[in-house]
Amino acid sequence: MENKTSGSATSESKTGFTTRTVVTPNEAMPKVWRRETKPHRFCPGCGHPIILKALAQAVEELDIQGRTVFGCDIGCSLLAWDFFNLDSIQTHHGRTTPVIAGLKRARPDLIGVAYMGDGGGYAIGSQHLLNAAMRNDRVTVILCNNTVYAMTGGQMAPTTLPTQKTETTPYGRDPAMTGEPTLGPELMAAIGRKGAYAARGTVANYRQLVKFTKKALENQLADRGFSFLEVLSTCPTNWRTTPRQTWDFVEDDMTRVYKVGEFLKPEDEK
């Protein structure tokens, strides 16, 4: 068996970056990550690998590597198709939720994770997300919110902030024309059934992100209900930001609109 990466030699910053160099990169890697496919294909500064690291750590700690199936969408999330030592299905845009929901119906013993971006979850696949939540499907949806369609070149997403410039809102998003940003976990909390879980984490708080990810998986393990986790993430490539500006955007701009925390817990009365 490989060693766990969270040994004493490594400490992690709040951002999830490994800050010490006393261990080799291989040793720092969660064992659920697949070494053969590293280095990964995400851009420098991308938030996806942090979310995927949190997922790997949660899977490891819950000891469900042997029964977890990872589904990923179109958009940058697809780059995770061979990221893990997990059986993985890279699907079609917006359709990861139904693929994993269908898999779970057919094999309830498996733990189904549907991983997608904000476009896949809140736009093209929104009907699937809503209906999976309303059916209380026993799946875990993890959605990366980086406020843009990233792989297609930085267009406006449902999560783009007011006044934020994107390729399709070159003068800034005007809510009078295009609406206000979609508040996913709040929506899931409103429509979620008893036993469901809805939370928003951020790549800027890794420990909390691992905690939320674990809870979103544990809820499925306990067969309590639908689990939804949105994660505030970064896209310096499309934001055209420096590292400093990137973190400021996530920690200040985004969190002004997107409150981090848990919005619905399984034990809540509905």
Binding site: M1, W81, D87, L110
Partner: peptide, 20 residues
């Protein structure tokens, strides 16, 4: 296609299916 016996990456290779 997925969810066969064994831990992927430990007992067997993971099954990776892609559409892209």
């Amino acid at each position: 296609f997925v969810g066969r016996p064994g831990v992927p990456g430990v007992d067997r290779a993971p099954a990776h299916y892609r559409n892209t």
